[in-house]
Design a binder for these strands. Structure first.
Lengths: 232, 232
DNA sequence: CCAACAGTGGACCGATAAGTCCAATTCCCC
DNA sequence: GGGGAATTGGACTTATCGGTCCACTGTTGG
């Protein structure tokens, strides 16, 4: 679990035994799943209780209130979202690798038939205005995700593939934005097409910043030309 | 349920007099505002009632239930969102015009300090999984928005500015995705920077599809090079 | 001018939400 | 193996929500 540097201002939780940790984890996992499918407001603590074979008192034993549970859910979703892209994020050092990442994001979303969109995105949209702590947590999650993308772009620049003037941090932010928007439209349209289109266009944008001499400039991953890959 | 293409499957509403129409509009406007700020689930009918100087019975006089009110709110937000970009959307016929549109979107979001993100995006995220009719309405709204963008890109292609192989519909979808994702990240980060980055990268992507001979290829709107415009 | 109907006010209802409380039970460690 | 803390079960409280109901008011057209 990632811990904020400034020591989180959490309620002093009682010590957790092994059993306690398991139960707590079970609650968070079920709550995360439910909130991904039905939203935070659409998930009652009774729903969580029913879905975890626990009792009301356990929920309040491990979490001060619903907001604290939401906080834990945010943390978990950040972990899961990043973990789902782990291999691709770890080797983002070329345009081809970016396209592999693109394919991964599309595949993950395709598997669940675009239902729920991005778990983080949903939490962001629902909590941003009502729960400042949750907003900060989601913001930190996005930041972590963006940083992984930026690291890859920095690697590309270090290898001379990316032109010197390009700002990896800003580009990574933009690519993440394209992913989020694509995910949202995909969820609404129940089709991965918007996600593919948004990511492809963003990667086309990256292409503009490739060094002229780079082998990838011509688009070895996209034979038919930019943004023309057929959707699956 | 089989729905005829033309006739909406709405509850047969009573005839509306002028006074009735005004009241109804007042309710929808207030509900839209509240739902933009606090979400659909976070807005009770009592909130709407209090914010409109109406009574409970009026809400149910004009709307069958909360879902029907939400439906009306979606329609209104679609109108407002598109209307806010009217001038820029009407003359999207060049890269420079696309950048003017970009500036407009950024400015609108900046004015409200990124609060609430995109009204349509918020509704999409919150309603997609729980209210099929609302999801369809939001989807139609996005479609309308996308079509406006696509029309501009088609104009560019007709003028020879865009290369023949580029697909205006798909590009428009991607640009809309960039906007939505940028808006979401901007809302979460409380900064327009992600929105600017996402839109700039998308427009960089469009640049890839410009005809080689076009005057705009060199980037007359972006003197310092792609994606390097300073944020305001 | 008066009936019929759109429009309005607000009390009321049942369901369900978050959160409380306390007794019972299990576990860990001395 | 016993004591204290961690853990658990579930009834209970209180508040709020969507939704219903009915009496009343304004308006309008014949």
């Amino acid at each position: 679990m990632i811990v904020m540097p400034g020591a989180a201002d959490r309620v002093p939780e009682p010590a957790l035994t092994a059993r306690g940790r398991v139960t707590r984890e079970r609650i968070v996992a079920a709550a995360a799943q439910l909130m991904h499918e039905h939203g935070v407001a659409g998930t009652s603590l009774d729903d969580v209780r029913a879905g975890t074979d626990t009792s009301k008192s356990q929920l309040y034993h491990y979490f001060a209130d619903k907001s604290a549970l939401v906080q834990a859910v945010v943390g978990r979703q950040v972990q899961l979202v990043v973990a789902a892209q782990q291999p691709e994020l770890d080797e983002l050092d070329s345009l081809a690798a970016l396209y592999r990442w693109r394919d991964r994001v599309v595949a993950v979303n395709s598997e669940r038939a675009c239902v729920g969109g991005c778990p983080l995105g949903r939490l962001a949209s629902e909590l941003a205005e009502d729960d400042p702590r949750a907003r900060a947590a989601v913001k930190a999650g996005f930041e972590q995700w963006r940083e992984r993308l930026a690291a890859g772009l920095r690697a590309m620049r270090a290898r001379g593939e990316l032109v010197g003037g390009a700002d990896p941090d800003r580009l990574a932010l933009a690519v993440l934005g394209a992913a989020q928007g694509g995910l949202l439209l995909a969820q609404t349209a129940r089709s991965v097409a918007p996600l593919e289109a948004a990511l492809d266009l963003a990667l086309d944008g990256i292409r503009v910043h490739l060094s002229p001499g780079s082998a990838a400039v011509a688009g070895r991953h996209v034979p038919a030309g930019p943004s023309s890959r057929p959707g699956e």
